[in-house]
Amino acid sequence: MPIPGDPSGTTRPSRHATRPSLLWRWFLQDKGPFATEPRTPCATSGPGPGRRCGVSVEGGALYRTLLLEEEGGIFTLTLNQPQNRNALSYDMAEEFQEAIGEVAGREQARVLILTGAGDAFCAGGDFHSIIAEFRRPAVELQPMLRKFYSRFLCLRDLEIPTIAAVNGPAVGAGFSLALACDMRIASSSATFHANFVRIGVHPGMGATYFLPRLVGASRALEILWKGETLSARDALALGLVGRVVEPGRLMEDALESARQIGAMPPRAVELIKRSVYMAAQSSLDEMLERESQAQALCGETREMQEAVRVFLGRSRGSRGGA
């Protein structure tokens, strides 16, 4: 399938290549909300329990700003600059896009967890490498910012579910990055800082896209106008996070959720994700068409055929047989 945003038309193998029907190909043509540049997977050793890429492992690549781990199809991507409270830099942006490309290319990938090293999730844009760029003329700065956003928000192009495990402060662009994930679980010590206006800047990294869709336009405006800081409990009450757990249980809880989702039939999970995001911009009739197509496609999968066989067998047994 085409890589979104690649003008050359370069393709990468579809996770659905084993089912190359015309309906599958048509159904999977829609693109995610953010276009990205072509991705270059990191050169790593083969898959296996606890495999890491982005660390000094024999045969593996080395990331300076990230840690990427995999076990049983669950990938954990850690923003790994605790000395800078995991601030987003140009170097991290390049490596982040590469790491997402690595996950996208792995057939066994089922769920991605995003978290931060140390006591912060992400402190927002790195002051020295990003904020200092605001001294440039706007006509020069805008394309730089757009490219910077896209390198992180390629996260949105992943077909698999993404979970933000928010372990501490999520500030500015870090707040937006957490919102870009499909689900969020917060430590009780996490805080969410929509502080853009406090330094006189318009929100970025998709904040004005994600926040209203989660809390509504009126509440989003209030949060952004006031530059509010939200506690984990505030975020839970607003629906920004699904649940709040004690700090020591955050990754355990996130991994358990990831395993539960990852155990479900993968094609059904991916189609549900696409349909839910399409629904925000579609009519009921369009979504009924979409749902009927997706259900028909699921009927072609081994997982659903097996589930139907088991269900019918149980039904016959409960009636004393056919």
Rank of each mutant, 00 (worst) to 15 (best):
I3C: 07
P4F: 11
G9P: 11
G9I: 12
T11M: 11
T11A: 12
T11C: 11
P13S: 12
S14E: 15
A17M: 12
A17N: 14
T18F: 11
T18V: 10
L23P: 03
L23K: 07
W24Q: 09
Q29G: 11
P33T: 00
A35P: 13
P38A: 13
R39M: 07
R39Y: 10
A43I: 08
S45A: 10
S45E: 05
S45M: 05
P47E: 01
P47D: 01
P49F: 13
P49D: 03
V57H: 11
G60C: 11
A61S: 14
Y63W: 11
R64P: 07
E70W: 14
E71C: 14
G73S: 04
G73C: 04
I74V: 14
T76G: 05
T78Y: 02
Q81H: 02
P82Y: 12
N84C: 06
N86R: 13
Y90Q: 09
D91Q: 15
F96H: 08
E102N: 08
Q108G: 11
R110C: 08
R110K: 11
V111N: 01
G116V: 12
H128Q: 13
H128M: 13
S129N: 00
I131S: 14
A132L: 05
R136K: 15
V139S: 15
E140C: 11
Q142P: 11
M144P: 06
K147L: 05
F148M: 05
F152Q: 08
D157M: 00
D157A: 02
E159T: 03
P161I: 07
P169I: 03
G172R: 10
G172K: 08
A173D: 09
A173K: 04
F175A: 07
L179Q: 04
D182G: 07
R184S: 06
T191L: 12
F192L: 14
F192R: 15
A194K: 01
G204T: 09
M205V: 01
A207K: 03
L211Q: 10
P212A: 08
G216L: 02
G216Q: 03
R219F: 03
E222P: 08
W225Q: 15
L238F: 03
L238W: 00
G239T: 06
L240K: 01
L240W: 00
V244Y: 07
V244E: 09
V245P: 15
E246R: 10
M251C: 03
A254E: 05
S257R: 15
Q260D: 07
M264P: 00
M264S: 04
I272N: 00
R274C: 04
V276R: 01
V276G: 01
Y277P: 01
A280S: 08
L284K: 06
R290W: 12
Q293L: 08
Q293A: 10
C298V: 09
C298S: 09
G299T: 02
G299C: 04
T301I: 05
R302Q: 06
E303Q: 06
E306Q: 07
A307N: 13
V310Y: 09
V310Q: 15
L312Q: 13
R319S: 15
A322M: 04
